[in-house]
């Protein structure tokens, strides 16, 4: 049962998702890994939509070069931990959601306790080393993972449903070269919002649009295309034949 304040706050979206859908969102727990270009727009819209518990993890502090795209941080936040800056804005936007900021990096040794109990994981990272750790934790705990990454005016997204769709290592068995790419803020914003939209679909038990394929956004022409992806039976993380070839 929604409170009076909740009914008022979500008045314009309840016709789309129903009170039952709104209650599902209220009961949902999401982990967002990264409070940067992807994580901040995703968190902003998930908090606005009423996702009940948002755990957000990032080890970094805000610097001025973040401010063209990391939309929850402002000039005043320079030097503050990103997760505390983000949590403050998210709580101000929607005091009815619980925000759990964790100032730390995702590592092999803390990944399990961080993801366990979550309904959904958002990969808002900026490197494949950490992405592979998150992917292994998602597959091992059986929790859906929404990946995104950006470079310049383009970006990619895929949704991993453990045991059903390709995992990140099926799709990206070899990481792209590590780099600090140029990024226009709207590119990260687009991909962060595509992740938030996919998260809402999954939490509301609707079909994931980026499962079994790579969604590719091209900001030069505002186009979205899909590249089909298959599971790798020999994938070292999720493959049904893993180990047999070793």
């Amino acid at each position: 049962m929604l409170s009076g304040t909740e009914s008022e706050r979500y008045l314009r979206q309840i016709p789309l998702i129903g009170e039952e859908g709104q209650e599902k969102l209220r009961g949902a727990k999401i982990l967002i890994v990264g409070a940067g270009g992807l994580g901040t727009p995703a968190a902003l819209y998930l908090a606005a939509a009423g996702v009940g518990q948002i755990r957000i993890i990032d080890p970094d502090r805000v610097d001025r070069t973040n401010l063209n795209r990391q939309i929850l941080h402002t000039e005043k936040d320079i030097g503050r931990p990103k997760v505390h800056s983000a949590a403050e804005k998210l709580r101000a936007l929607n005091p009815e959601v619980e925000i759990e900021p964790i100032e730390d990096a995702l590592r092999e040794e803390n990944s399990d306790p961080l993801v366990r109990g979550m309904d959904l994981l958002l990969d808002a990272l900026d490197n494949f080393q950490a992405r592979y750790i998150l992917n292994r934790a998602a597959v091992s705990c059986g929790i859906p993972l929404i990946h995104a990454a950006v470079n310049g005016l383009s970006g990619q997204m895929t949704t991993v449903i453990p045991g059903k769709t390709p995992c990140l290592e099926c799709i990206f068995p070899h990481p792209p070269p590590a780099a600090r790419p140029p990024v226009l803020g709207i590119t990260a914003g687009m991909l962060g919002l595509l992740q938030a939209g996919e998260a809402l679909r999954l939490l509301l038990s609707q079909n994931a649009v980026a499962a079994n394929r790579l969604l590719v956004w091209d900001g030069r022409e505002a186009s979205l295309e899909y590249i089909p992806m298959d599971r790798d039976p020999c994938c070292r993380v999720c493959g049904v034949e893993r180990g047999s070839s070793e």
């Binding site: 940067g36 270009g37 992807l38 808002a124 990454a149 950006v150 470079n151 792209p176 600090r180 790419p181």
Partner: peptide
Amino acid sequence: LTIYPPVAGG
């Protein structure tokens, strides 16, 4: 032949 260069930024 489709050629896709994955990206990594966030």
